[in-house]
Design a protein around this nucleic acid. Structure first.
Lengths: 237, 237
DNA sequence: ATCGATCACACTGCCGACAATCGACAATGA
DNA sequence: TCATTGTCGATTGTCGGCAGTGTGATCGAT
């Protein structure tokens, strides 16, 4: 979470609408508002102590970003992500992450390299003890650091939006799970490619990583629908 | 333009907000609302015969999509695209278009191939007589047809949004210009790659096409800032 | 004449209220 | 008993209004 959510009452520097938007986004990410839930305007506005106006504006913004869906005269609902759309997003994300790898390979600094190396080593340790709770934030930071390093605001925003949207898909059930060691092997490969400053190699490695994650998710879904227990080495980023 | 803009008065099937959003988007694309212009709420609401509420919601949506910028207590302004951001967008667009090429290469149909071939031939003729007015719509349709053929809604929407946003950058001054023959040579290359059903080759060709367009634009800008007349073979898609 | 402070205007931010619409439940008829 | 229709409650769509803020103009002082 970037800076979390402000107090909503104290911050008058920022518009009430954008504060509400952040708040709603938080509630959705939190899980309090689950996919498919309707966002009741009256209920939410009384809860936040505002009128419906700014709340509706916040909702429109969330709609444009793809986090909720608006049905006329019925209300707005938290977006439900189907399998097809999740796969679509993986493809787009792969292309964007590949681009990130390409760009970063060309502007690689020793400092960033050290940072990323540390993260991969940390994940290695976490994977060894199958500690997902420790692995997850490191993994998040690893991807974030790479994308941010591109310094391409358009790319950064787009990528973040897709990742957030992806979290609307069966929240944690599939993103979690095993496959840590496998995933981190790909991280090491990406790191190696970045260190070599080879744009083509880096792009391929980054793209492949997302592609593999997609396949792991697809496999996990197949297992699930087949009634089997998801394999321990299933979906991991 | 997809289906253009509805009448705004007759269509009660769709929400007033989304109708206003389309209307504003049209005015921006039209040029009536130029980059940097402020969108006066009162003026626009009286013009469309609505209250400020739905208008503000439409503006929030446009803000989320990146077409306008909101400054608290000052108003919303049509987004002004700087050179840096335009270059950023080209990079992202290149990655997305490359992905489109990869996907389409794998699901290429004879029908689509025929359609694209016809378009390239049409552009070839238009380029021969340096007829930009005829070239432009064919070029637009060529790109649109490829992206649509992916059937990846996420990709399609994202790509379209970027293209629209790009149009906010010196509207026509740089997108127009010569380079038709050069550009169409790249189209032929893309087409050949698609026809061969080779994903890697298609991705590379598509990505390179956008990359070249970026370079043509950058060169045109350099010429412009150097005071020279933009070269006749400057920026073309 | 230029610069700074004061003031008024225009506009945005936010709110409460009214009207339109949809879904659910009950009543009616076959 | 089931399908159909009428009614009611809840919720959204839209509007006009008031308060706060920023901008530009006016006026005065140096």
């Amino acid at each position: 979470m970037e800076d979390g959510r402000g107090d909503l009452a104290i911050l008058k520097t920022v518009s009430l609408t954008s504060a509400l938007e952040k708040e709603l986004e938080f509630l959705i990410a939190e899980g309090e508002l689950a996919p498919g839930d309707r966002l009741n305007e009256i209920q939410l506005s009384t809860r936040f102590g505002t009128s419906r106006g700014p709340l509706r504006e916040a909702m429109r913004s969330l709609e444009a970003k793809g986090f909720v869906e608006v049905v006329r005269n019925r209300g707005v609902f938290v977006k439900q992500l189907g399998v097809e759309e999740a796969l679509e997003i993986y493809d787009v994300r792969g292309a964007l992450f590949g681009l990130a790898g390409r760009i970063v390979a060309q502007k690689m600094t020793d400092q960033l390299l050290a940072h990323l190396t540390g993260l991969v080593e940390g994940m290695e340790a976490a994977a060894a003890e199958r500690n997902f709770e420790r692995y997850y934030p490191l993994n998040l930071e690893f991807h974030r650091a790479i994308v941010d390093a591109t310094e391409n605001r358009t790319l950064i925003n787009e990528y973040r939006r897709l990742v957030k949207k992806m979290h609307l898909f069966r929240a944690k059930s599939l993103v979690q799970g095993g496959g840590l060691a496998v995933s981190n092997r790909e991280h090491a490969e990406m790191l190696s490619a970045l260190a070599s400053r080879d744009p083509d190699r880096a792009q391929a490695a980054h793209w492949r990583h997302v592609e593999q994650a997609k396949h792991r998710m697809a496999a996990a879904i197949d297992d699930e629908t087949a009634g089997r227990q998801p394999a321990p080495d299933a979906a991991a980023e």
